[in-house]
Write a protein that binds this DNA or RNA. Structure first.
Length: 277
DNA sequence: CTGCAGGCCGGCG
DNA sequence: CGCCGGCCTGCA
């Protein structure tokens, strides 16, 4: 067990459960267990302190700081957002302590491909089926967990086998993406070095990755706060706030008002809308 | 049973 | 180009 002190402005519960990540479990003691790329981690928040257990303590504090994005000054960004649009005040208030969790890129890619025209329980189910079948099994606190497999581990998986993981018509999209990564057409490490627009195009070069999926990947796995994934909830929010509903108008307002932090702005909208709906 | 979900593709006008 | 029907699957 390790602890991290002086945690300011974190709402662990909201950050874990807000809908960004799909594979986590909540325990009776209000702790959360997540599977990161190479380990299982149990996190519990006690006010300004985090209590953390894992099957692998190597560099764990740093892993958590990165994962929960605790090095970023959200209050500073919130102030900037509020100055450019005071209509965001409620959304920001109701999202106090909400962090953008830094997901593992490959897992995020598959996750958001599966998410299209789908429901959260189904997405979670498919992700778990893929992990159980192709991922490494890890024992932690008497339970079994499965790491999400790498693209390398999936290189011989067929379209039909993806279909068995209940991904439906998205089977070929996943297959294509895994092939593209393994043969070097798409390099997920290289995405870090690309401008946002180039990165979008690179991800969208794979069939089955459109603007929504690509921007979710960039926002949630690469911490690009300058992308703006427009989904059902955000549409509702923007309609209620500004009376607009077309994709174009929403994107226009977002980039004008929120600029390089528009991704965080939508996360707040999403969170406030989803919590009240 | 029909409808639809955290989009995207492909075909058509 | 923009529009729109259809899509795996599971659940109301």
């Amino acid at each position: 067990m390790i602890t991290i002190d002086k945690i300011e402005d974190l709402n662990l519960h909201d950050s874990i459960t807000c809908g960004q990540i799909f594979r986590f479990s909540e325990s009776d003691d209000n702790s959360y267990t997540v599977v990161l790329s190479d380990r299982v981690i149990n996190i519990k928040q006690d006010k300004n302190k985090l209590i953390i257990k894992s099957n692998n303590y190597e560099n764990l504090e740093n892993v958590i700081m990165e994962y929960l994005d605790l090095k970023t000054d959200y209050n500073k960004i919130n102030k900037i957002l509020l100055e450019s649009d005071n209509m965001l005040e409620d959304a920001i208030k109701s999202s106090q302590g909400l962090k953008m969790i830094r997901q593992e890129p490959f897992e995020a890619v598959i996750e958001y491909i599966i998410s299209q025209n789908n429901k959260v329980p189904s997405i979670r189910n498919s992700m778990n089926l893929i992990a159980q079948k192709y991922g490494e099994k890890v024992q932690f606190e008497g339970e079994e967990y499965y790491l999400f497999p790498t693209a390398e581990k999936l290189k011989n998986v067929t379209i039909e086998e993806y279909r068995q993981a209940k991904v439906g018509f998205r089977d070929k999209y996943i297959y294509n993406m895994v092939q593209a990564i393994n043969n070097g057409e798409i390099d997920l490490n290289e995405i870090h070095n690309l401008e946002t627009e180039q990165a979008m195009q690179k991800l969208m070069s794979n069939v089955g990755v459109g603007p929504k999926v690509a921007s979710c990947i960039l926002l949630f796995a690469y911490g690009r706060f300058d992308v703006f994934p427009i989904d059902t909830w955000v549409k509702k929010y923007m309609f209620d706030l500004y009376g607009i509903n077309s994709q174009k108008e929403i994107a226009k307002i977002a980039s004008e008002k929120y600029g390089k932090y528009c991704g965080l702005a939508i996360q707040y909208m999403y969170h406030s809308k989803r919590n009240r709906a």
